[in-house]
Design a protein around this nucleic acid. Structure first.
Ligand SMILES: NC(=O)c1ccc[n+]([C@@H]2O[C@H](COP(=O)([O-])OP(=O)(O)OC[C@H]3O[C@@H](n4cnc5c(N)ncnc54)[C@H](O)[C@@H]3O)[C@@H](O)[C@H]2O)c1
Ligand SMILES: NC(=O)c1ccc[n+]([C@@H]2O[C@H](COP(=O)([O-])OP(=O)(O)OC[C@H]3O[C@@H](n4cnc5c(N)ncnc54)[C@H](O)[C@@H]3O)[C@@H](O)[C@H]2O)c1
Lengths: 211, 211
DNA sequence: GTAGCGCTGTGAGGCGATTCACAGTATCGC
DNA sequence: GCGATACTGTGAATCGCCTCACAGCGCTAC
């Protein structure tokens, strides 16, 4: 019913409301959120339709109520732990970036196989040897993982993660993963992204709506 | 005519053919590429339809010919230069990752405003002060840029880049950019990506095709 | 009190992307 | 040589997401 794109926008709306609104703003209209998110007002209203928070004509949506509803939809009620596998250049950047950003979505387990990194602490999170993967994931009941290992190891690591109970994977390795279809994978393929940008920086009409 | 998703897949096909095929393989079938790319065979054939390389029944597509055609479609004939703005944790990871990966798509200009970083060399690429942005971009005729500055600076920097002639932007700052609509922007929003993965790791049926 | 305005919530329709399904064809076995 | 086979290329059908458009309504002005 609620599809990936819509969930992504809900996440964006929340961030815009909490981080990029004049502090003290009590109400927003769909067209204001739409402008910030670069989508149409109708899109915003449709996305918010299923939430329990409802807008009023003439005032719009109560910001605090909306943020709460969004949290309700997006966050695990008591908090959800995330594992990060591969503490290389990208892994460390991600660790720095995500840490402390959301109360209910924190990286609490890191893994690598490089002895240099094992047992070092990154952003308050100790790096385990990758052999402890299964133990730690099961102990902490972790179902969400960021994968930042080299391409050659990605599929094997994904298999282990899935076997250990992981149901959501954010994959930075530039190879599409094969997983059972009750596991959600999001491919974050930066090479593709850059090549696409390069392509459209040159060729043809760029595919975007007027405004 | 050729849409962003299709271009993204072409980029992926090429990478799969060059990096993940048994060396020596001379032909591939659409269903083989499809399996590697995690898409349907019909999708592969449709994507390749417009290329000048054509498949043969009973043999499939010639790999070398296909790779050449893909390069033909995706690459700038004589090479395309890319700028990277913001040499922080993420910027440095990206620099390391992209450098030397494609002959015709290389990061050749880096910018930051931190005096610590200016004039240091990262992956063979000297970091300029951001005030030299316009000069360098125009001198090298750069139209493709990766943006990895803090959210607060992203829009302003995007405006400067567009004014300096940039027509394609890969944005890592977690704020959607407002640009004229002859400029192509790709938002790489990692927070959204992680929150979406977390969401689908919990809730409902995951949205994927059988196989 | 009531008219007017401008917004929300949403059914219906439209549109782009994907899949279906098959005609056309190169190859193989005999 | 010729039938069987399995693939490509592609028109047509389908699907899912997004936008249109408007009924319903709360607020404001007077
Ligand atoms: N750096 C980037 O900006 C960037 C961009 C796009 C994609 N990627 C992809 O992300 C992945 C990581 O990139 P990176 O730049 O951080 O590489 P990196 O080489 O710096 O880091 C890889 C890390 O993974 C660890 N590792 C290797 N095999 C492992 C295994 N089997 N189990 C656990 N840990 C293992 C290594 O010890 C290392 O710490 C790669 O697949 C890369 O292609 C990176
Ligand atoms: N680190 C990550 O993994 C990650 C993940 C997702 C998104 N991001 C986003 O990417 C961006 C960069 O992240 P980071 O972790 O590298 O941050 P960072 O603070 O490490 O680096 C930012 C860099 O930009 C430079 N900078 C700041 N203002 C500038 C300006 N006006 N002109 C030129 N350079 C300027 C700073 O000197 C610094 O070197 C941020 O917007 C961040 O939200 C980062």
């Amino acid at each position: 019913m609620v599809q990936p794109h819509a969930i992504g926008r809900l996440s964006l709306y929340r961030r815009l409301l909490t981080d990029h609104l004049n502090p003290g703003t009590q109400f927003v209209f769909s067209h204001e959120l739409a402008t910030m998110a670069r989508v149409s007002p109708a899109q915003v209203r449709r996305d918010l339709m299923h939430l329990d928070s409802t807008g009023s004509p003439s005032k719009g949506y109560r910001v605090d109520e909306l943020v709460a509803s969004l949290g309700n939809e997006l966050d695990h009620p008591t908090g959800q732990l995330v594992a990060l596998v591969g503490i290389g250049n990208l892994g460390r950047a991600l660790m720095t970036y995500f840490q402390g950003r959301r109360e209910r979505l924190a990286i609490t387990a890191a893994f690598d196989r490089d002895p240099e990194k094992v047992n070092r602490v990154y952003q308050g999170c100790r790096c385990h040897h990758v052999e402890e993967l299964e133990t730690v994931l099961k102990r902490d009941n972790i179902r969400t993982t960021i994968l930042a290992v080299p391409a050659a190891d990605a599929q094997r690591m994904a298999d282990r993660l899935v076997a250990a109970g992981v149901r959501g994977l954010l994959n930075y390795a530039p190879v599409p993963l094969r997983v059972p279809n009750d596991v959600y994978v999001e491919e974050q393929d930066m090479t593709t992204a850059l090549e696409r940008v390069a392509y459209f920086a040159r060729e043809r009409r760029p595919p975007r709506r007027e405004d």
